[in-house]
Computed example of a mutant assay.
Amino acid sequence: MELSIVIPVFNEEGNVEELAQEVDWALEGSRLTWECLWVDDGSTDGTADKLYIIAARDPKGRHRFLRFERNAGQSAALWAGFRHARGALIATLDGDGQNDPADLPRLVDMLRREGYDMVNGYRAKRRDSLVRKISSRIANGFRNWVTGKTVRDVGCSTRVFRRECVEHLPPFKGLHRFLPTLTVLYGYRIAETQVGHRPRRKGVTKYGIHNRLWVGLLDSFGVWWLRRRAFRYRIVQTFPEEGCS
């Protein structure tokens, strides 16, 4: 398996079927072996039923889903998705349909061709409300100021990375806001590229100033502490060589 696409969803029954079709169209001509792993974060609408239909009618078995007993948050959904993904590369998308799956083959090609460990998208033309744009800009600026600048749009979910980038990340609420920051912290190479962004077609956003901006600002201090206290090392020799008797 070359690529696993992890998509966390919460009460997105109006978006998942169209998004699944777009994933099929985007990856069909890419020659990649892939899967799409949906993580239902305890939805209370018909999302789980829709995901069952998507997975059941896929003759190649490329669509799979996990379902949480109750809502645990986007970070938990991504964490579970990463651990159940089977691909050497992992991509992420939001489940609201605002990210364009058509960008993914280009990001995969960029990562492979130029030898990066993560390629993170940035939304040059955001299709969000003014409140969301302002809160995101404040959060991005503050996050980069506290934790060190890594990418211009930390909140963009369109990204592709090697699975080793997330194998040893610490699990915590808010993890999804710091994936690029933590990837750089652990010594991986990261690049950026412009990606598409679309208006939400159906449903309502689950995030606002109270559950996105202020929590994200507080989390930044935790990542700042981790960054200041982190260490890295590289072993150049062992004697006797491990595995030799």
Rank of each mutant, 00 (worst) to 15 (best):
M1T: 09
M1E: 10
E2S: 06
L3C: 04
S4Y: 00
I7A: 01
V9T: 07
V9C: 08
N11C: 12
N15Q: 13
E22P: 00
R31C: 11
R31P: 02
L32Y: 08
W34E: 08
V39A: 02
D40P: 02
G42Y: 01
S43P: 06
D45R: 07
G46K: 07
D49W: 03
Y52T: 06
A55W: 04
A55K: 07
A56T: 07
P59T: 11
R64H: 14
R67I: 07
A72C: 10
G73L: 06
G73A: 09
S75C: 05
S75N: 04
W79H: 03
W79M: 00
W79A: 00
G81C: 04
R86G: 05
A88F: 07
N99I: 03
L104E: 01
P105M: 09
V108Y: 01
D109P: 00
D117L: 10
V119D: 02
G121P: 03
A124I: 05
I134T: 12
S135E: 10
F142D: 00
T147M: 04
G148E: 06
D153Q: 12
S157E: 13
V160I: 13
H168I: 07
P170G: 08
P171L: 10
H176Y: 14
P180W: 10
L182I: 15
G187K: 12
Y188I: 05
I190P: 01
T193C: 08
R198C: 06
R198F: 13
P199W: 08
K206P: 04
Y207E: 15
I209F: 12
R212E: 14
L213I: 11
W214F: 15
L217M: 13
F221I: 11
R229I: 02
R232S: 15
E241A: 13
S245V: 11
